[in-house]
Amino acid sequence: MQIFVKTLTGKTITLEVEPSDTIENVKAKIQDKEGIPPDQQRLIFNGKQLEDGRTLSDYNIQKDSTLHLVLR
């Protein structure tokens, strides 16, 4: 499925993911596309910070959902 990740600069990254993917996996995909190390990434969905060990389906993230990427 496709999800979107919006950065603070207003750029939107499109990712191909599975609901069973962990947040860690998603961060690795963002690193592949953008070169941002996962330990600098914080992903936010519906105002909640997403934890590495959880999956997209844990957070009820579905296709065409938009996550927000904050760098630390």
Rank of each mutant, 00 (worst) to 15 (best):
D32M: 10
I3H: 00
K11M: 15
I13M: 09
S65F: 13
F45E: 03
L50W: 01
T55F: 05
V17D: 01
I44V: 13
P38T: 14
L56I: 09
I61L: 02
Q40S: 06
G10D: 08
E34A: 11
G35D: 04
T66I: 12
D21N: 14
T55G: 08
L69R: 01
A28I: 14
I44A: 12
R54Y: 15
V17L: 10
S65E: 05
P19T: 15
T9L: 15
F4W: 14
S20W: 05
L50S: 01
L56H: 00
Q31G: 11
N46L: 14
P38D: 11
L8A: 15
K29M: 05
K11F: 06
L56N: 01
Q40R: 14
L67S: 01
G47E: 05
L50T: 10
T22R: 09
N46P: 01
D52L: 09
Q62F: 06
I36M: 14
K6N: 13
D39T: 15
E24S: 14
R54Q: 12
V26R: 00
K29Y: 08
L56D: 00
Q41M: 07
P38E: 05
S20F: 12
R54W: 13
Y59T: 02
I44Y: 11
Q2N: 14
Q49Y: 13
Q2G: 09
P38N: 15
D32V: 10
H68G: 03
T66E: 03
I36L: 13
Q40A: 11
D52R: 06
L69D: 01
D64F: 09
F45I: 09
G47M: 12
L8F: 04
L8G: 09
G35A: 11
V5I: 09
I44L: 03
L43Y: 09
I13D: 01
K6I: 10
V5G: 01
Q41I: 07
P38L: 04
T14Y: 09
K33H: 13
S65D: 05
I13F: 15
I30N: 01
I3Y: 00
E34M: 12
D32I: 07
L15S: 01
E24F: 13
R42Q: 07
I23L: 07
S57F: 07
V70D: 03
I3L: 05
E18L: 08
R72Q: 09
F45V: 12
I61P: 01
E16Q: 12
I13E: 04
K27F: 06
G47Q: 13
I13R: 04
E24Q: 08
I30L: 08
I13G: 02
K6G: 02
G53L: 13
T12H: 06
D52Y: 02
L43K: 00
Q62N: 10
K27V: 06
D21G: 07
G53T: 10
I36Q: 10
N60Q: 04
I3P: 00
Q41P: 02
T55R: 13
L69W: 02
Q49A: 09
E18D: 14
D52K: 04
D21Q: 04
Q40L: 05
F45W: 12
L67N: 01
P37H: 10
P19L: 10
L71D: 11
E24T: 15
G53D: 10
L43F: 12
T9R: 02
V17F: 05
H68M: 03
Q40M: 04
L67T: 01
V17S: 14
F4D: 14
S57M: 15
E51I: 09
T14P: 09
N46T: 12
L15K: 00
R54M: 11
T55D: 09
M1E: 08
L56V: 08
E16M: 15
I36K: 04
L69Q: 02
K48S: 08
E16S: 14
